[in-house]
């Protein structure tokens, strides 16, 4: 069973002038279980929209997204929320940690909407990312590299089948970026999660055996172009 299967996925936004602006048209995409794939794409190419569609944060206009065998597009919004909480881990470029919560609480919070809180596993994850002595620290008390490590631990908190990483090293210096990227890849492997990472950073992409060009899988067309 694939971790992710996509077919004929469409997403169009309206421009400020009210004109339809196609952003996503992915005819087919597949990510095998425990596989790790990087998507290369420039700014504004629709990478984040693509990940948000996969995560169920955005609803596609048409097409099919199957996560670990469950078709996302057939689900109601609350079912998509549930599927996201239990099956998908999401690592953001800007970390998106909650500032009022400690490291441990940020990870526990990720668990609370999923299958349930497992404090020992949360601690083990934070230990794995090298933050066992920072459990009670707040994000503002951590370096950016450490914050992204917390985000990695949080993404894996519910033992997801698929981890989405959106420019996870974009806000880190080179040394930290290399370290965090290695950590993401290792922990996903250890937790048997497939990894789909998007980036435009050559060094990051160089770490992956499988790198796909986003513009090769995504062909958004306007209605006028389609008519032609």
């Amino acid at each position: 069973m694939s971790a992710l299967e996509i077919s004929d996925l469409h997403k169009t936004f309206l421009s400020p002038e009210g004109l339809p602006q196609p952003v996503i048209h992915v005819s087919a995409f597949e990510l095998a279980e425990r596989n790790q794939v990087a998507l290369r794409g420039g700014s504004g190419s629709g990478k984040t929209t693509f990940l948000n569609l996969i995560a169920g944060i955005l609803k596609p206009d048409a097409g099919m997204i199957k996560i670990a065998g469950r078709e996302m597009s057939a689900l109601s919004e609350s079912e998509r929320d549930r599927l996201r909480a239990t099956t998908i881990g999401y690592i953001f470029q800007t970390f998106n940690l909650l500032q009022g919560y400690t490291c441990l609480e940020n990870v526990l919070l990720g668990m609370s909407f999923g299958p349930g809180v497992d404090r020992e596993f949360a601690k083990a994850l934070l230990k794995r990312v090298g933050l066992s002595d920072r459990l009670k620290h707040y994000p503002r008390q951590l370096s950016t590299g450490q914050q992204q490590r917390v985000a990695v631990a949080r993404a894996l908190a519910n033992r997801p089948k698929l981890v989405l990483a959106d420019e996870p090293t974009g806000n880190l210096d080179q040394a930290n970026a290399r370290e965090v990227l290695g950590l993401i890849r290792e922990t996903c492997g250890e937790n048997r999660a497939a990894l789909l990472l998007v980036s435009h950073d050559r060094e990051v992409l160089g770490q992956f055996e499988s790198v796909k060009e986003f513009h090769e899988i995504n062909h958004p067309v306007t209605a006028r172009e389609a008519a032609r």
């Binding site: 944060i57 549930r82 996201r84 909480a85 919070l109 990720g110 909407f113």
Partner: peptide, 16 residues
Amino acid sequence: RREIAILRALGARRSA
């Protein structure tokens, strides 16, 4: 708004 969006991205339902 961002905090709410993060909670939602983590799987929190609108009703929650």
